[in-house]
Amino acid sequence: MKKLAIAALSCTFVMGSLLPITEAFAQDHRRPDRIEKKVVITKHSWKRGHRLSREERRRVQDVRDFRRYRLAPPPRGYRWVRADRDFLLISIGNGTISNVIGVR
């Protein structure tokens, strides 16, 4: 009788410890997955003097921490952006590329 009580008690501890795991597992499956969209512009050769269209300017990422990528501070009226794997120094006013740094 003593063995039966110990076995029943140990089963309750094991099942009690599995309950939070199964609840968390069920909650993860009920929650819809978040799909992150990463926009990549497929233009392989950026050239100085090319003017970015409005659509291209919407798709590029601003680079605010240019020192992290060892880029020079942008002059007044320019900003660094990242397109594909390249860094572009573009004019804020009209979107003309003044410098291209390619990453290999």
Rank of each mutant, 00 (worst) to 15 (best):
1 M>W: 10
1 M>D: 10
1 M>S: 12
3 K>E: 11
3 K>L: 13
4 L>R: 15
4 L>Y: 14
6 I>H: 01
7 A>Y: 12
9 L>P: 02
9 L>V: 11
10 S>G: 04
11 C>I: 05
11 C>E: 12
11 C>F: 12
11 C>K: 14
13 F>G: 11
13 F>K: 02
14 V>L: 15
14 V>K: 08
14 V>W: 12
18 L>P: 00
19 L>N: 01
19 L>M: 07
21 I>S: 06
21 I>H: 08
22 T>G: 05
29 H>A: 06
31 R>Q: 10
31 R>W: 07
32 P>K: 15
33 D>H: 14
34 R>P: 00
34 R>N: 09
34 R>K: 14
35 I>G: 01
36 E>G: 09
38 K>M: 11
39 V>E: 13
40 V>D: 05
42 T>R: 14
42 T>A: 13
43 K>H: 13
44 H>V: 04
45 S>M: 01
53 S>W: 09
54 R>S: 06
55 E>G: 03
57 R>H: 03
57 R>W: 01
61 Q>D: 13
62 D>N: 08
63 V>P: 00
64 R>D: 07
64 R>W: 10
64 R>H: 09
64 R>V: 13
65 D>E: 11
65 D>A: 13
69 Y>D: 05
71 L>K: 06
72 A>L: 11
72 A>R: 10
74 P>I: 02
75 P>R: 07
75 P>I: 09
75 P>Q: 07
75 P>Y: 09
76 R>K: 06
76 R>W: 03
78 Y>E: 03
78 Y>C: 04
79 R>G: 09
81 V>W: 02
81 V>I: 07
81 V>S: 00
82 R>N: 05
83 A>H: 06
83 A>N: 06
83 A>Y: 12
84 D>E: 07
85 R>G: 01
87 F>N: 01
88 L>W: 02
89 L>Q: 08
89 L>V: 04
89 L>G: 06
90 I>A: 02
90 I>Y: 07
91 S>K: 14
92 I>K: 15
93 G>I: 12
94 N>M: 10
94 N>K: 11
94 N>T: 03
95 G>E: 12
95 G>Q: 13
96 T>V: 15
97 I>M: 05
97 I>R: 03
97 I>Q: 03
101 I>G: 00
101 I>M: 02
102 G>P: 00
103 V>S: 11
104 R>P: 11
104 R>I: 03
